[in-house]
Design a protein around this nucleic acid. Structure first.
Length: 590
RNA sequence: GGGUUCGUAGCUCAAUGGAUAGAGCGUCUGUCUCCGGAACAGAAGGUUGGGGGUCCGAAUCCCCUCGAGCCCA
């Protein structure tokens, strides 16, 4: 029995109590729609526990323990429950029949990779935008965090029935592209990087690649005109344009390749420039204007965002006629919600803490279009990744050229460990990564613990086959030891974890769950054998009860061994399902 | 100065308002000739930054305060 179905049972019991009139002022409308059923930390508190009586005590005018006892009596009548006890201030502790607890095993094995999934987000299209780094350099470690988290969240949302569009927004319109091109020209001529420009080995490398490509095309790129304006700044020049034209696609490709290698694939690569090429910016602004949220002042065009809770109104068209960055954001949001294919019901933005100041204006934008704030637009702010070496923090700067990139991370620890370490912590938690830990190739990453549990379970399965143990004749109610029961309960938690990971937008919950499941499995493995082994003479010398316990652990009868093999295989399946949500491999051998 | 996200074991991180705040790493002690020891069992390590409040119950919610990151002045 799963915690979800147990909650259903408790809800029914509450309904019965309300109708009977025995439980004080308890009425049907007091019963919460979601009843919390949790796993007690202490084994002696039963398999599952609920605090429903304490929550309802005050409203019904009853003492918590008295109300709990009424629930206990009602629940004890249900099939599959072996005992119910009231404990502490009013907890209701429930112990299941071993057969009822073990039913989850058959459910997992029959559903396979679909086990744990649900359709509760069915019919919704969720647009996830993440990473969206400028195409002026490689993805750095902060972008890598979003790649791992965003991709995993997309998988989790899909597993809950949502239609998911993963999207990457290239800022290929603004001045940073000019700076990038200028930096390349300077590097090509072995000149120092311009002020506000980018430097670093990758700039030199891209510059050389552009030169090589141009040469191949018969263009002497270094001798194209370089115009210098009177004030010393470089104006538009044929040479810079040629560098820009060739380097930006190279950077696009490099970013896409490294994300693909990191198993973070996107459905839509959106170019900011396209918003201008097809008039989307003008259209989106005119719609805002129709809603009465655009006005002119001091020669500029403003968005009245303070009407919707922003700190101050925002300029969308400067007095010189230039569009602001925010004008692109306006058009982009409008596009997400109204495009022809897969318009978003919910636009989820995953931004770093350095963009936290944008939340107000973006949410105002959402409301200005008549959409519902925090519902049609959801913004997840993640804390930045701090990189340190020898205990000292390093300040990364793309312009200074000392970034730790996604490629660096993958080179150091591989895709599995890299993704896992970035996704297992809450994204809104500062994350500290020490370069020494990355470069030492250590095996202390929890991903190996989880993967090893999977490899081990596969190995047990192979050994069982070789020893002639099959799942035929399995008697699941014989999964009645403490280790069995703990492992069964852990398996039963998976569907709830998957739903919560989606609802809270926290894929880290899946990783944490897998670590708990792996721990329960390793403990189980140490305690109970699948392939029977004869007891030694020494084993048989103890008290009868102790000998029997050893017999059950080491030399299970066929029906019990078969049941354990099923449990073992069910664990392998759930580990596989969970790791797949994180796009981490589930190896059969390590 | 205003806003915002945080502050938990030596380090990196967990913990729907629940029972004795948990893991990993590090330190220390054990593990049966036996399904893979990348494991298991155990020990030490905490005034959840500090102070008030709400609640049957607070790391969690509210107020004040200290410190840090980020955004805006």
């Amino acid at each position: 029995m799963s915690p979800e179905s147990l909650a259903q049972l408790i809800s029914t019991a509450a309904g019965n109590l309300a109708q009977s009139g025995k439980a004080g002022d308890l009425t049907v409308d007091l019963i919460p729609s979601a009843i919390a059923v949790s796993r007690p930390k202490d084994r002696s508190h039963g398999d599952w526990s609920t605090n429903i009586a304490m929550q309802l005590a005050k409203k019904t005018g009853m003492k918590p323990r008295d109300l709990a006892q009424l629930f206990a009596d009602e629940l004890a009548k249900s099939d599959g429950i072996s005992s119910v006890e009231v404990a502490g201030p009013g907890f209701i502790n429930i112990t299941l029949d071993s057969g009822s607890a073990a039913a989850i095993v058959d459910e997992i094995l029959s559903q396979g990779s679909a086990f744990g999934t649900n359709r509760h987000l069915g019919g919704k299209t969720l647009n996830l935008e993440y990473v969206s780094a400028n195409p002026t350099g490689p993805i750095h470690i902060g972008g890598a965090r979003w790649a791992a988290v965003g991709d995993a969240l997309g998988r989790v949302l899909k597993a809950n029935g949502a239609k998911v569009v993963r999207e990457y927004y290239f800022n290929d319109h603004g001045v940073q592209i000019d700076r990038f091109a200028r930096s390349l020209v300077a590097a090509a001529h072995h000149e120092p990087a311009p002020q506000d420009g980018y430097k670093g080995a990758y700039i030199d490398e891209i510059a050389q690649r552009v030169i090589a490509q141009a040469t191949q095309d018969g263009i002497d790129i270094l001798n194209l005109p370089r115009v210098t304006a009177d004030d010393g700044s470089e104006g538009d020049s044929a040479q810079r344009e040629e560098f820009r034209k060739r380097a930006v696609p190279m950077m696009f490709q490099e970013i896409q390749d490294s994300l693909h290698h990191f198993r973070a694939d996107f459905d839509v690569w959106f170019h900011e420039q396209s918003l201008y090429n097809n008039g989307m910016v003008g259209h989106a602004l005119s719609v805002l204007r129709d809603h009465g949220n655009i006005y002119e002042k001091d020669g500029a065009t403003w968005f009245a965002s303070t009407k919707f809770g922003d700190d101050k109104d925002r300029v969308v068209i400067k007095s010189n006629g230039d569009m602001t960055y925010f004008a692109s954001d306006v058009a982009y949001y409008y596009n997400k919600r109204h495009r022809e294919t897969d318009p978003a019901d919910v636009a989820i933005y995953m931004l770093g803490a350095d963009h936290s100041g944008y939340v107000g204006r973006l949410q105002a934008l959402c409301a200005a279009y008549g959409d519902e704030q925090y519902v049609n637009m959801q913004i997840l702010i993640g804390q930045l990744v701090n990189v340190s070496k020898d205990g000292k923090p390093i300040r990364m700067s793309k312009r200074a050229g000392n970034v730790v990139t996604l490629e660096d991370l993958v080179d150091a620890v591989g895709v599995d460990a890299g993704r896992y370490s970035l996704v297992r912590t809450g994204y809104n938690q500062n994350l500290d990564i020490d370069l020494n830990v990355l470069s030492s190739h250590t095996n202390d990453n929890p991903v190996y613990y989880v993967q090893y549990a999977h490899a081990r379970s596969k190995n047990v399965d192979r050994n069982a086959q070789a020893a002639g143990v099959t799942t035929q004749g399995a008697e699941l109610s014989l999964l009645d030891t403490i280790a069995d029961s703990n492992l069964l309960a852990q398996l039963a938690l998976y569907p709830g974890v998957l739903a919560a990971a989606a609802d809270f937008r926290e894929p880290s919950r899946v990783a944490r769950y897998l670590e708990d499941l792996a721990a329960a499995y390793h403990t189980w493995y140490a305690a109970e054998r699948v392939v029977p082994m004869e007891l030694t003479d020494h084993d048989k010398q103890g008290e009868p009860a102790a000998v029997e316990a050893l017999r059950i652990a080491k030399d299970p009868e066929p029906a019990r061994a078969a049941a354990r093999l099923k449990l073992n295989d069910a664990v392998a399946q759930v580990l596989e399902n969970g790791l797949d949500l994180l796009a981490v491999s589930a190896p059969d051998k390590m």
